[in-house]
Write a protein that binds this DNA or RNA. Structure first.
Lengths: 195, 195
DNA sequence: TGTATCCTTGACAAGGGTGTCAAATTTGAC
DNA sequence: GTCAAATTTGACACCCTTGTCAAGGATACA
């Protein structure tokens, strides 16, 4: 039963992600990960070194997926449609499937409990998200569709989305999240006062 | 060295609160609390039963203080000034003093990691906060000062404030939080279009 | 086939956390 | 002054977690 790696890395990272999402970084033990992935604890240590490294791999994979999807929906010219699609992604991310919870927000909330490296990764994701949103808003702002300058609007959306993730933890009501998101969109992109 | 309780309950709860804020409920051990309060672990168990009970006492005290202060600043007739004061309180709460961090948000983010009783307390605080805000908005809305119906506006502020607490953990920039809060206020309470 | 390499597995040591308890000690009341 | 009640204290048992390691087994390549 050895000689060459016997587990599929993608599968392990996907299952580890689900655990980290639900329990958060600190509360997840290597034993939890071993149980969830079906890979023995010793093998995980052998392959990744420690929990932090395994988390960083998981997080990187998650970040790439999330930012790619976000960039894609923000491409369109209609900023209202783009924002709606963005919140759909973000909310689905928190509420759908067995891997509920927002990995970014949960990790961010742990604050100084986690290592500087992990905090830097979280900050990096939020910075990138902010930049994507700001670019989309800048395009829309040129068309006079926005109630705010692009950088203020992006900051607002990033902050607000963190709030949604916390509200999901407390109330677990995806419908309410969508309603609140729509309210924000209405504030940011007022219906044009007809020429 | 015994016979009657030798510690001041208020002092113990205040110091415990500081620890819970910084580390969060799960990450705080009874030994942490014993060190911070100067009361031996055994005495804490004797006085409170367990960590959850001690946390609930701490949280109740925090909740009362926070809601009282909020109700007070929301009393005024000028909704813009009231909101500004509210965010000042909330942001000071997260960033000032040795007890940094928002206890509500940090606990909320732990989600299902904590007991149903703790989650109910957190929900209770947010419900009360929402009600206070909704009442203040309802008074302002009657004067046509608001961009949103009172219940949507209160939901928005509650959600947004959770987001601020997460952003504080990530960026630790109180000034940026204040700027973002002011942006939200401007969206919610548009400057009157002069009669 | 032989051998070096790599992965897996179970065990181990060390550290920390929780909750309990008996002994010691002090207080307050009778 | 004596006694009951309550608090403090340190120790104990138990469990979980991390990280390491040696032994065992499979693979690939020469």
């Amino acid at each position: 039963m050895a000689g060459v790696r016997r587990f599929d890395e993608e599968e392990v990272l996907a299952k580890a992600e689900a655990v980290f999402r639900q329990k958060g970084y600190e509360a997840t033990s290597m034993l939890d990960l071993a149980s969830a992935t079906g890979v023995q604890r010793g093998s995980l240590y052998h392959a990744y070194g420690d929990k932090e490294e395994l988390f960083l791999r998981t997080f990187g994979r998650y970040e790439a997926r999330f930012l790619t999807a976000t960039a894609q929906v923000l491409e369109g010219a209609d900023i209202r449609a783009a924002l709606t699609a963005f919140f759909d992604i973000a909310i689905a991310n928190m509420t759908a499937g067995p891997a509920r919870g927002c990995l970014t927000t949960k990790t961010a909330a742990e604050g100084e409990q986690t290592s500087a490296r992990i905090r830097a990764e979280v900050r990096g994701l939020l910075d990138e998200l902010d930049a994507l949103l700001a670019a989309a808003f800048a395009r829309a702002g040129a068309q006079g569709a926005l109630a705010l300058p692009a950088d203020e609007a992006s900051r607002m959306v990033v902050t607000f989305t963190r709030g949604l993730a916390v509200m999901e933890r407390v109330y677990g009501d995806a419908g309410a999240l969508r309603d609140t998101a729509r309210t924000l969109i209405d504030l940011l992109v007022p219906t044009r006062p007809s020429v």
